[in-house]
Amino acid sequence: MLSIKNLHASVEGKEILKGINLEIKAGEVHAIMGPNGSGKSTLSQVLAGNEAFEVTEGEVTLNGENLLDLETEERAREGIFLAFQYPVEIPGVSNLQFLRTAVNAMRTHRGEEEMNAAEFMKLAKEVSKQVDLDPSFLKRGVNEGFSGGEKKRNEIMQALLLQPKLAILDETDSGLDIDALKVVSDGVNALRSEDRAILMVTHYQRLLNHIVPDYVHVLAGGRIIKSGGRELALELEEKGYGWLGIKDEETADSAAN
């Protein structure tokens, strides 16, 4: 489904990704782990099409189509979804209006009729229950005043509504307490299907207890330095990033404390 070959990307002239190679097939769940600053979030943003990042070399295809030629909105319509690490607050645009506009943009792209307000309201209420968000959140501004956990649940709600082909989850577990983590994981697991792929980007392996990946990759210094199965994450958990010869400030810090 997704094929990344020798991907290099930089921001403000500084190279962050230094040759990423990754193949993801439909139905698979991949986890990318790595210390802070390794390029995990950059990879997510580049795949989603953030213009702040410049691709300097390499290629990315989605089902054979050159992804890098597409605008962000076209990538979304082709099935790329990025759950943001820091979802954006947009006061003045209601969550409901935002979600309906997005869903209808997808439907129009697929040649389907737009959903009217009443139809969409019904669907949105169902999905909000699935991620344990009170329907009153639909009336509020997009992420406006939401807690960290509520924002993450709103991201998963969007994924459930938009039904992407490839869902990229950028640090979706960060800032979640154990109950919220369970709700978010249940939502992600509900997304798992044979024709959909999931790419999880995470610092810690605890999310992987809830969403069990098929493959785990370790990203460091802008390259994937090790790939394996689920056991690789457990090994990392036990031994720390230092085990692979990676300097990880956060791990080092927590060890020092």
């Binding site: 909105e73 979804f81 003045g92 943009a105 938009l162």
Partner: peptide, 19 residues
């Protein structure tokens, strides 16, 4: 954020301006 949800750039501009 808005265009990453498939919303057309023009529409996203309108939403943010109206906001």
């Amino acid at each position: 954020y808005l265009v990453s949800r498939g919303i057309a750039r023009r529409e996203a501009n309108v939403l943010l301006t109206m906001a």
